[in-house]
Simulated assay, not measured.
Amino acid sequence: MFVRAVYATGDPALLDAAIRSVNSEGRDLLEERPGYRGAGVFADRELGKLLTMSWWETEEARRNSDEVMRERRKGLLEPFAGTMAVANYEAAVLHEIRHPRHGGGLRVTSMEFDPRDADLVVDTFRATVVPRSESLPGLAETALLIDRERGRGVTGSLFVDRACLAASRAAVAGLRHAAAAKAHAVVVGLEEFEVVHADVRFG
């Protein structure tokens, strides 16, 4: 599958209105598009950050949907979004243990790598990160999204609640260090979010 991520920052006091807009009108717009497989909405209410991710069967479906969403996105996120960035990824690895739920937690790790090492990054995540992550209490899903051409990627780990997310930090720190070294990747960002909505049809 293929993913479009929209990352917006703004006044925390205006975040709830943006979430309501994305979860109602925004979701209706996505549901109408061919090839749509679901979406996730994640928030950092304290700092004022909103991350939305839509999932698509094909790269073409994602590209075609963006022609519609590009015109509507700004309106959906106003007046919250002071900044907004859009990124596209290939969903290289998807591993679901249980369905995430509202109020859970998401950890996002951003990385950069030599585009020639893209397959090494994917193989390392699949062979090392996935099996070692399965033992983490409360883990619901883990995924690797990559942009092979630009040498960029993000890993996302969803937990059933924020307590499990917090409890996993020490174990994941060691795993992140080992996996990044093995994959020749550089970690450039680490963030955590509340799961507002998550409904992706992997199968």
Score class of each variant (00 low, 15 high):
7 Y>Q: 11
7 Y>M: 13
8 A>L: 09
8 A>I: 07
8 A>D: 01
10 G>Q: 06
10 G>D: 10
12 P>V: 12
16 D>Y: 13
26 G>E: 07
30 L>G: 10
33 R>Y: 01
34 P>L: 04
40 G>K: 00
42 F>W: 06
43 A>P: 01
43 A>H: 02
44 D>M: 07
45 R>W: 00
48 G>H: 04
48 G>V: 03
49 K>C: 07
51 L>N: 00
53 M>Q: 11
53 M>I: 14
54 S>E: 01
57 E>V: 00
64 N>C: 05
65 S>W: 07
65 S>A: 09
68 V>H: 04
69 M>G: 02
71 E>M: 06
72 R>K: 11
72 R>Y: 00
74 K>N: 09
74 K>D: 11
77 L>T: 02
78 E>Q: 10
81 A>K: 01
87 A>W: 09
92 A>H: 13
93 V>I: 08
95 H>C: 09
96 E>S: 14
102 H>I: 14
103 G>F: 03
108 V>I: 10
109 T>W: 08
109 T>Y: 09
111 M>R: 13
112 E>F: 13
114 D>Y: 11
119 D>W: 09
121 V>H: 01
126 R>Y: 05
127 A>Q: 15
128 T>D: 14
132 R>Q: 07
136 L>W: 08
137 P>Y: 13
140 A>D: 06
142 T>W: 09
144 L>A: 12
146 I>R: 02
147 D>C: 09
148 R>W: 15
149 E>G: 11
149 E>R: 10
155 T>W: 08
159 F>E: 04
160 V>N: 04
161 D>E: 05
164 C>H: 15
166 A>L: 14
166 A>S: 13
167 A>R: 13
167 A>V: 13
175 L>G: 07
178 A>F: 15
185 A>S: 07
189 G>E: 00
189 G>Q: 00
190 L>I: 14
196 V>L: 04
197 H>Y: 15
198 A>K: 09
198 A>I: 06
201 R>F: 14
203 G>V: 08
